[in-house]
Amino acid sequence: MSETLLFVEDTLQIWALQFMGTVYFLRLLWILHFKAGGDRQAPTGRGTSPRKGILYSWLNVAMPWAMESTRKRAFMYAQFIIFHLGVVSAIGLSFIIPYAAEWLHSLVLVRVLQVSIGLAFAVGVWRIIRRMTHPVMRKISSPDDYFSLILLTVWFFFAFLSVPNNHQDGEGVLMTFFLLTAFFLVYVPFSKISHYLYYPFTRFYLGRTLGHRGVFPLRRTS
């Protein structure tokens, strides 16, 4: 393995991670500088509470039956899960290769990662097409939306190819994957991809409010 690849796999990633961590920290401070709205009202509804509401809200992502938007569109939920599992796998891969490369001697793990990342790549392509062709998606999309999605999809592609960690036949694929990873880490805090930083907060506040008001957990009959 070349010194350059070693640097890109390790040192560069640490620098990028540090940068991302710093910007995220600043981002958190920015969010926290907004005054949080309070709630003086006595609770409404039955059998729920802010705590239950928050828990329900946080776990919402794992309950496709909870929201009509995911309940009625199973494919949308499935592609969401596949895409995000792919992200987790590709991030995991970026740590496994420099720090636990021997794990990739396991053919099972290699296949699991390849399937996960490969499917996520397919979803990424589908998402790009949807974003470019669906009238609503086109209307609401910004350059950042397109770029972030394309970036991730290309990243999946190189992650998929990098899974075997085979640098004997050339380092181009691995080099590209890790350079993309580093760029990704630096770019994320400025893009929509940083949504996962907000997720716990948005769902916390929505859950707290609607739990206090007896709405969360949602009840329905259908």
Binding site: I31, L32, F34, K35, A36, G37, S69, T70, R73, M76, F80, H134, V136, M137, I140, S141, S142, D145, K192, H195, Y198, Y199, F201, T202, Y205, T209
Partner: peptide
């Protein structure tokens, strides 16, 4: 804009699920 609003304004990923 308070914190809840700021988060609602910052967090949208334009997924179209709404």
């Amino acid at each position: 804009v308070n914190r809840q609003m700021a988060l609602s304004l910052a967090a949208c990923v334009h997924c179209g699920m709404c």
